[in-house]
Design a binder for these strands. Structure first.
Length: 575
RNA sequence: GGCUGGAUAGCUCAGCUGGUUAGAGCGCGGCACUCAUAAUGCCGAGGUCGGCAGUUCAAGUCUGCCUCCAGCUACCA
């Protein structure tokens, strides 16, 4: 696994003033899947995430709590580290903008830009809203009867401020940026976002104010203590801080920079696709290879906002549906780059139809047959029929197909590619009907089951980046050793050895069954019991079998139809 | 307002450079099977491919116009 091929992927650094939500989880998830995929594919990966801890809002929040900013950020930054651990992210580093290494990098970059004449001292004046940390133009404001002005967009009160400010000569990079976009058509993905960025740049670029004097919580401008650096200048630099900048001879810097992918939400694309490349051009440093802007989630069709109170907490999601299920859903439901809707019904459909029925049941039916009919061991295959060859070829070609999709961040296409094989495998089981071959032609049965086991192995291998825990379990059921789980083992190279003993399989993906009776307590002549969970449900008549728990902890099963009858007769009453 | 991209089966969407009966998943209906997590497979269901007019032997697939929708339109993370 010693990779000679480096791969560097980053999430944005998350602003600590926010509580971690689904958006943060989503960006990092995409990076995690790419990082895991690349590692399995033999790359030497660095996956970076972290927190952005400077700015006026943070300073204010800290003041409001009566603590110094550093103490405050130590605490809130931890929320993001906790989320990463909770979601199973495999980041190799976690950077904080309050770290000394970062301050050094920012100041070094600043001085470099200044030396090259791309940073100059000027003055900034305008209508400023403290609450928004933003300047507004006259037409973005509304005059109130009392003479004060508020920002139309946010309603925040603004004041006229005049302050000296350093500027970055962004205007000088318009043509260079356009040329770069032109020469690197995949620098910004998806394409639609790329068009937006290009049209923005073509519209003309003004110099950028890159320092502030109105608050203190930031990286000091070298040689001018009255100023701190503008947040984006500070924040974007994290990507090179983490690989050792300003030491351009650092091992990590030489290995990993320029980054392969900066993953960002669509709202911060401009900073990554315009400002950041311009800063790097000015510093004469290599530019990242790709900036991918993904979309946002809605909640049951509703736009998510704090004021609506419908913010989605990824921790709640995982507790309700399961970690791998949530990871799968987020990358499966929507073409990566588009906006998506997080709907409970869609989540349940994906879980049950695709994970439990298609994949989980495939492995369960095949492994059960092997354990029951092949001496609890991987059977020895005979010569392959044409249909066997077609099946096995699909399984063996899977990695390369999935790799193509992953390389352009088409996670949803990657999953679809895998599911084509899973569906083909289920069709193959039915067509070959190994349960009939058991009596008619046991050797043939052995071959079919071997082909299926191989298919499951390959499917599980390529699904590892998406669902690490479940696939660990599935590969474990096949007794695949840890060292045989990277992509070199895909295809014939890692083929299952006949005779390998298998344990009796356990379900990998449980079904999710919704029912209004869940959690209700009933009292009857047998005692008081709680309807604990739904074990299974007949999709035709919607009858459900519940697991019920009596007061003494005894468990039993109860059919929903019987429950209804008992309720009608009055034999049971809800407590 | 300007720019860009959309509008295809009940739902969510594929349909590259124009070419015989327009596809998938989910949902729905029927059949088969019984290995498996009440799972699987097969078959089907008469969608004016937003509207109008063109180009062409031939148009969801190109052109124009129209109607809706979405995103972007700078110093806000």
């Amino acid at each position: 696994m010693s990779g000679s091929k480096p791969f560097y992927i980053t999430t944005p650094i998350y602003y600590v003033n926010d509580k971690p939500h689904i958006g943060h989880a989503y960006t990092s998830l995409a990076c995690d899947v790419m990082a895991r995929f690349k590692r399995l594919d033999g790359f030497d990966v660095k996956f970076l995430t972290g927190t952005d801890e400077h700015g006026q809002k943070v300073e204010k929040s800290a003041n409001a709590k009566g603590v110094d900013p550093k103490t405050f950020t130590d605490s809130v930054s931890q929320n993001f580290r906790d989320l990463a651990a909770f979601m199973g992210y495999s980041n190799d580093d976690f950077i904080r903008t309050t770290e000394e290494r970062h301050k050094k990098a920012c100041q070094a970059l600043w001085m470099r830009l200044q030396e090259r004449g791309d940073i100059y001292l000027g003055g900034y004046e305008g209508w400023y809203a403290v609450r928004d940390e933003a300047f507004y133009t006259e037409d973005e404001l509304e005059k109130k009867p009392d003479g004060t002005r508020i920002a139309k967009a946010s309603g925040a009160e603004v004041e006229w401020v005049e302050e000296p400010s350093y500027f970055f000569k962004l205007s000088a990079y318009e043509d260079k940026l356009l040329k770069f976009y032109d020469e690197n058509p995949n620098f910004i993905l998806p394409k639609s976002r790329r068009n937006e960025v290009i049209s923005f740049v073509k519209g003309g670029l003004q110099d950028l104010s890159v320092s502030r004097t109105t608050f203190k919580w930031g990286v000091p401008v070298p040689g001018d203590d009255d100023h701190i650096m503008y947040v984006w200048m500070d924040a974007l630099t994290n990507y090179i801080t983490a690989v050792g900048y300003p030491d351009e001879e650092a091992e990590q810097y030489k290995k990993y920079w320029p980054a392969d992918v900066h993953m960002v939400g669509k709202d911060i694309l401009r900073f990554h696709a315009v400002y950041w490349p311009a800063f790097l051009m000015a510093a004469d440093l290599p530019l990242p290879k790709r900036v991918f802007a993904h979309g946002w989630w809605t909640n049951e069709g509703q736009k998510i906002s704090k004021s609506l109170g419908n913010v989605i907490d990824p921790i709640d999601l995982v507790n309700k549906y399961g970690l791998d299920q949530v990871r799968y859903f987020m990358l499966r439901e929507v073409p990566f780059g588009n906006d998506g809707d997080f709907a409970h019904s869609a989540m349940v459909t994906r879980m049950n139809s695709e994970l439990a029925n298609d994949l989980g049941n495939l492995s369960q039916r095949v492994l059960s047959m092997i354990v029951k009919n092949c001496d609890e061991a991987i059977p020895a295959p005979g010569a392959y029929s044409e249909e066997d060859q077609v099946m096995i070829a699909q399984a063996y070609n899977l990695v390369s197909g999935v790799r193509e999709k992953i390389d352009v961040q088409a996670f949803n296409d990657a999953i679809e590619t895998i599911w084509l094989v899973i569906r083909a495998a289920n069709a193959y089981v039915d067509k070959q009907a190994p349960w009939k071959l058991k009596k008619e032609d046991p050797d043939r049965m052995a071959t079919v089951l071997y082909v299926l086991a191989e298919t499951i192995r390959n499917v599980a291998l390529v699904l590892q980046p998406f669902m690490p825990t479940s696939m660990d379990k599935m590969l474990g059921l096949l007794e695949i050793a840890p060292e045989n789980r990277n992509f070199e083992a895909c295809g014939e190279a890692g083929a299952l050895m006949a005779g390998t003993k298998l344990e009796k399989p356990e379900g990998v993906f449980p079904r999710f069954i919704d029912h209004e009776e869940l959690e209700k307590t009933y009292e009857g002549k047998d005692g008081t019991f709680l309807i604990k969970r739904a074990l299974r449900q007949n999709p035709k008549n919607k009858e459900t079998v519940f697991e019920i728990e009596f007061k003494d902890g005894k468990l039993d099963e109860l059919n929903s139809a019987d429950l209804e009858k008992a309720k009608e007769k009055g034999a049971l009453t809800q407590v």
